[in-house]
């Protein structure tokens, strides 16, 4: 094949692919700025003739959008902080602290990955029902406060830390906790960033467990609020698109600003097979 033709073909296909990948996002943004009722016309408009932010204003004023937005940030933030703490401590212990049964315990944890999370959801709901935690923030946050994949990622990374450094600190009489906070944590910074963004995005986009656990609108996250609006069939196209933009935009911006860490985490997690 002629090199010029091949080059045009490769780049043309990439451009076409990027167009398909981005079109729904661009369309969502455009429709969210159209006055109510103007999106459903023929031919379907691509661009708002009279751009407006009314749909957003309406959502914040009448549809409880501030609440959903606040809940989403609160829940995703809490899950991120708690699971970082648990996963960092455990991952480091599996990598660098010697104790009987270490490898066996770690292998059993990896075994848990085979079980789909949904199996646990029914008894978890009952557990929370009998402890009064149904429809509470804690009920969404606690089950996500430690993850096997997170522990695995930290362990992978922490295994590369130099033992000599830790031994020297031990000889100097530093406690294990002090070694962890002053020596280990700073060295783990890249994996902390990776894990933080992976966890936050997953928590933000999570749907099934919050749907089961949060039975009242007061604790709804953005995806739950949006799904409820979409299933009620009362909201207009334009206002649903505005709701979708508000749901997607925070995570999309976060991803764009920390892309490097996100993709690294994806590759690290990917080698587990």
């Amino acid at each position: 094949m002629m090199p010029r033709l091949a080059r045009a073909l490769v780049n043309g296909l990439l451009l076409g692919g990027a167009l398909v990948a981005l079109f729904p996002l661009a369309w969502m943004l455009a429709v969210s700025c159209m006055p109510p009722g103007t999106a459903n016309t023929l031919p379907p408009p691509l661009w708002p003739a009279h751009p407006t932010l009314d749909n957003y204003r309406q959502l914040f004023a009448h549809a409880g959008m501030w609440r959903y937005l606040g809940n989403s940030f609160l829940i995703s933030g809490a899950i991120t902080l708690l699971s970082l703490t648990c996963n960092l401590l455990a991952g480091y212990a599996f990598a660098k602290l010697r104790f009987a049964g270490r490898e066996r315990l770690f292998r059993s944890l990896l075994g848990l990955l085979v079980v789909p999370a949904q199996v646990a959801m029914l008894p978890l709901f009952l557990l929370f029902k009998y402890t009064g935690l149904v429809d509470s923030y804690a009920g969404v946050v606690l089950p996500g406060a430690a993850t096997v994949l997170g522990i695995f990622l930290v362990r992978q990374y922490a295994q590369g830390l130099p033992d000599a450094l830790l031994e020297a600190a031990r000889i100097d009489g530093a406690s294990e906790l002090r070694i962890f906070t002053t020596i280990v944590l700073p060295l783990l910074r890249p994996v902390i960033a990776t894990l933080a963004i992976l966890t936050f995005l997953a928590a933000w986009n999570d749907f099934m467990w919050p749907l089961i656990e949060l039975t009242g609108q007061d604790h709804y996250t953005l995806p739950l609020g949006l799904a409820a609006m979409a299933r009620e069939h009362t909201a207009g196209t334009e206002s649903l698109m505005a709701g979708s933009v508000l749901t997607v935009l925070p995570v999309l911006l976060l991803f764009l600003s920390m892309q490097k860490y996100y993709l690294e985490g994806l590759l690290l997690g990917g080698v587990k097979g």
Binding site: P223, A230, S244
Partner: peptide, 19 residues
Amino acid sequence: ALFAPVVTTAVAMAVVWRY
């Protein structure tokens, strides 16, 4: 650009897809 859909919220994009 090709990776962007992965980080979007499934629920929100499913709503977009419906339209």
